[in-house]
Amino acid sequence: MSIKKMTLKKLFVASSIALSSSLVMANGVSYDYVQGGIQDYDDQFDGVEFEGAMSFNQNWYGKAELFKGDTNVGDADVDRIRLNVGFHTPINNSVDFVAEAGFEDYEVGGFDDSGFNALAGFRGMASSNFELGGYAQYSDVLESTDLTLEGRYHFNRNMSVGVEIGNDDELDNHYGANFRYSF
């Protein structure tokens, strides 16, 4: 295992511990939003990602993700769709535990496969404007686990920008930035 991967995993564990401790929170995080952004998977591929989530009730929500990009070698198209059902519940007044499961479909060049994915992690407000999240996601199609950390700055109740860094044991490191509108 490379030093880069070990450092990212240590950062994920430290952030998860910090999120599960008592942080000051002015407002809760939203599970009703649309967002768009860019993703870069090191030397593998990069592209744009669109995501939307909507609450069914106090604890359950649905989420759809669409990624469209190109590989960096061979210039093949990359398409990923995920349709998940999620559950969230407060751990304390600052942090939610989040779990999702659902369908995913990957198309890369001539490769086309579908299966399930599952995610577990934490989301919470570190201050009135700054949100932190840490997640582990398993992909049945890629047979890989992805550890991701995200930070989000809220301009107001509806608009925010986010950055993320992660490591997928199949796709290596990835980075992203996005804009979110919460409703």
Rank of each mutant, 00 (worst) to 15 (best):
W60I: 13
G162A: 12
D42P: 00
L83P: 02
Y181Q: 07
K10E: 12
A136Y: 12
V24Q: 09
F116E: 04
N92W: 06
A53R: 08
D169A: 10
E164W: 08
A99W: 06
A26M: 06
V13Y: 09
G74I: 11
D46N: 14
N117P: 06
M159D: 10
G124S: 08
D75Q: 11
V108F: 04
P90G: 06
G52R: 05
Y181S: 09
N158L: 04
M159S: 10
E65F: 00
A18T: 10
F97C: 04
N167E: 07
R82Y: 02
A53K: 10
Y175A: 09
V78Y: 08
M54A: 13
V163W: 04
I38E: 05
N72H: 12
S16L: 07
S15Y: 02
H154Y: 11
S128F: 03
E49L: 05
V95R: 01
N92K: 08
L147K: 00
I38R: 07
T7H: 00
Y41S: 01
V161I: 15
G162D: 03
Y153P: 05
G151K: 01
D40P: 00
A64V: 15
R123E: 15
F122A: 07
T145E: 02
F111D: 06
S182N: 15
Y61K: 02
S16Y: 02
L19P: 02
G176K: 05
F116K: 11
A14Q: 04
V29T: 13
G102W: 02
G110F: 10
S20R: 01
D40W: 07
G36P: 01
M125V: 04
N93R: 12
V78I: 11
E104R: 05
V13C: 06
V141W: 04
G166M: 11
Y138Q: 09
T89W: 08
S15H: 03
Y135F: 15
V163Q: 04
M159N: 13
D43P: 00
F116V: 09
E170G: 05
